[in-house]
Simulated assay, not measured.
Amino acid sequence: MKNKVFRELQLFAAETGTTVAADLTPAISVDFTSRIAQNIVELQQLLGITDLIPMAAGTDIKIYKWTVGELAAQVGEGEDIDLTHVKRELADTITLDLDKYRRNTTAEAIQKVGRDIAINQSDEKLIQKVQKGIKGSLYTVLKAGTGTAAGTNLQICLANLWAKLQKYYEDEDVSPVYFVNPQDVADYLGTAQITMQTAFGFTYIENFLGLGTAIVSPQVEAKKPIATAKENLRGAYVPMSGDVAQTFNLTADTTGLVGMTHSTKTGNATVDTLLMSCVKFFPEFQDGVFVGTISGE
């Protein structure tokens, strides 16, 4: 009886070597998630963030600033000492909402231009947009920095920002990082030869003008460079694992930063791409971020 059942199952089993959907979709997802995660890790290293903190979706991240009042005047022997007011207050809140993205590819599109363009290259464009969103959220919170500095050109402005960082982090050994609009760099350097590198779509210059790492991006407002210490930057993410990943059959690499899946829909002959992530970079203290102003000659 057992042999009969086994022979019947063999009749309905796919022929050995047959390529099935399960062979195709996870491979695509694994490749993309590994590349995205590697880019995020490169950005993490560039920003000097040691660890990304895993948190549950919906968690609120609090960003604070310090306010220290004027030091009280000194008093004579036996007299009451006046108070110096020190206050830590909430400056901003970031909520770790689950980011969900989906696109759909038709059979006709695959037939017309091929699988690589219709699915893979199109997914690549989606991923670039997602990465831009992660970078954009970082710039949004950096622009809200409460420290200020100014200068008549880029070098003087960055030097004054550096000085403000030295004062703010007086008792700490920190590594300055600057965020600069590319036009400001071009205006200052002209035809000077400099070595630029890239990570996660960022262009950066190590030891720029001897002041620290400069990250060059058009998302920074022209003539408004931003500076902080790498030690003030933090990162958090929602791990793409657990019930959500299992329910939607998400594939993630070992970091768990991004979950992705591809699925065929026979009802309308299309392929669905589903991408989920939640990665946020932010400063721990808003008053430890300084926004400069290049005033011109």
Rank of each mutant, 00 (worst) to 15 (best):
M1E: 09
M1K: 08
K2F: 13
K4G: 04
K4S: 13
Q10Y: 06
A14H: 14
T18K: 11
T19P: 01
V20N: 11
T25Y: 15
D31T: 13
R35L: 07
R35S: 08
N39T: 01
N39R: 03
V41W: 01
E42F: 03
L43F: 01
Q44Y: 02
L47W: 05
T50G: 06
D51P: 00
D51C: 02
A57K: 05
T59G: 00
I61K: 03
I61G: 03
K65L: 08
K65G: 09
V68E: 12
E77C: 06
H85A: 13
H85V: 14
V86P: 07
E89T: 10
L90H: 08
L90M: 10
A91Q: 10
T95P: 03
T95Q: 11
L96S: 00
D99Y: 05
K100R: 14
R103D: 15
T105P: 03
T105S: 12
T106L: 10
T106M: 10
E108G: 10
I110A: 07
V113W: 08
N120P: 00
Q128R: 15
G133W: 02
K135Y: 01
G136W: 00
Y139I: 04
T140L: 11
V141P: 02
L142R: 03
G145L: 11
G145Y: 10
T146A: 06
T148I: 09
T152N: 12
C157R: 05
A159D: 09
A159W: 05
Q166G: 13
E170A: 15
S175C: 07
P176E: 09
P182C: 06
D184I: 07
D187S: 11
L189T: 04
L189N: 06
G190P: 09
A192C: 08
A192D: 15
Q193D: 13
M196W: 02
T198N: 07
Y204W: 06
Y204D: 03
E206S: 14
E206W: 03
F208P: 09
G210P: 07
T213H: 02
I215Y: 06
P218F: 03
K223R: 15
L233E: 02
A236M: 05
V238S: 02
S241H: 02
G242D: 04
D243Y: 12
V244F: 05
Q246V: 05
A252V: 07
T266V: 13
D272C: 03
D272E: 12
T273V: 08
T273P: 00
L274G: 05
L275Y: 00
S277H: 06
K280V: 00
F281M: 09
F282K: 01
F282T: 00
P283R: 04
P283G: 04
E284M: 06
F285W: 12
G288F: 06
